[in-house]
Amino acid sequence: MTAFVRSVRAGALAGCVLVLAAGCGGGSGGADASDTPPPPSHAPAPPADKGPQCEGTTTAKGLHVLRGGSETLPGGAGPVLYKEGGSDGTHRTATLSNGTGTGSAQSGTESWRVRPGQSLTVKGTTFTVSQICTYRVVLTPKDGTAVTQSPTPNPVDPTWPDLNNGRLRLRWHVPNTEKNGAISAVLHDVEAGPDRAYIAVTSRAGGGAAYQDARVGDTLEFSGRLWKVTVIDTGDGNPSMANPRSGYVDLQLIGPSR
């Protein structure tokens, strides 16, 4: 990639953060721009995930911690974030951390590498790691505490985002923001060889995510829904928000997250 294109991308990303702070894409306010992940480093593409996509109890009720994002745990246990994940082709593991932040801006003083079915104790509160997916970890309180978060569409505006035949198109660097600014999704970057995308979701109510190196066929979760990446168009290398050929990603609605 030329130095000129990198320079253009960096400038556009800086502008995108300002736009997010102003609540671009619908309504005033906007999700907290300080939670917006920084741009990726354009490192070589990681190997494709070996699968399985999910491992654990599919019907488990618990808190959904999305990949690259943090959630506040019930019982005063503080926030936990899904930092990294991997698979050996048979079983999945995840690295969780305390602290806040999304993407490479994650912070924390303690981390745990967990597997499905394992117990996890955070500040005296114990959870079962009920499920690990490429896109989320489900934590179920062992003391029977009901988790108030339910996998339902965005409660501020259940119709967000607007879909076309169940499809959501995210254009490079153009935030798609709920009308009250409570949640926003943005395609931060697209890369070729192989085609992959960096999609970030910010939310004032929690449920933020940072899906780096997403590929066609991958499943994502946000706004209480599951989405499949169906198209990645890398565009012409010019990320200007006024450029109709700057690249895009199509997400197809699968259904509510369960």
Rank of each mutant, 00 (worst) to 15 (best):
V5L: 13
V5N: 12
V5I: 12
R6A: 13
R6C: 04
S7N: 05
S7A: 12
S7K: 11
S7F: 05
S7I: 04
V8D: 07
R9C: 14
R9P: 10
R9N: 15
R9I: 15
A10H: 11
A10R: 14
A10P: 01
G11C: 10
A12E: 13
A12K: 03
A12M: 08
A12C: 06
A12Q: 09
L13D: 14
A14L: 11
G15V: 00
C16N: 06
C16P: 01
C16I: 04
V17D: 04
L18V: 09
L18Y: 04
L18P: 01
V19H: 10
V19Q: 08
V19A: 08
L20K: 02
L20P: 01
A21E: 08
A21I: 03
A21Q: 04
G23A: 00
G23E: 00
G23I: 00
G23N: 00
C24T: 03
C24F: 08
G25N: 00
G26Y: 01
G26P: 02
G27M: 03
G27I: 01
G27P: 01
G27T: 00
S28D: 03
G29I: 00
G29R: 02
G30I: 00
G30F: 02
G30D: 01
A31P: 01
A31N: 00
D32S: 08
D32F: 06
D32C: 06
A33L: 04
A33F: 08
S34L: 14
D35K: 14
D35I: 06
D35Q: 14
D35C: 10
D35W: 12
T36P: 05
T36H: 13
T36D: 07
P37I: 09
P37D: 10
P38Q: 14
P38A: 15
P39N: 15
P39A: 15
P40Q: 13
P40N: 15
P40E: 12
S41Q: 13
S41C: 11
H42G: 13
H42K: 12
H42M: 13
H42C: 12
A43R: 10
A43L: 14
A43K: 05
P44M: 07
P44F: 10
P44K: 11
P44R: 11
A45P: 12
A45E: 04
A45L: 09
A45S: 11
P46W: 02
P46K: 01
P47W: 00
P47A: 03
A48T: 09
A48S: 10
A48V: 13
A48I: 09
A48E: 10
D49G: 10
D49C: 07
K50T: 08
K50F: 08
G51S: 07
G51Y: 06
P52K: 05
P52D: 05
Q53W: 11
Q53K: 09
Q53A: 12
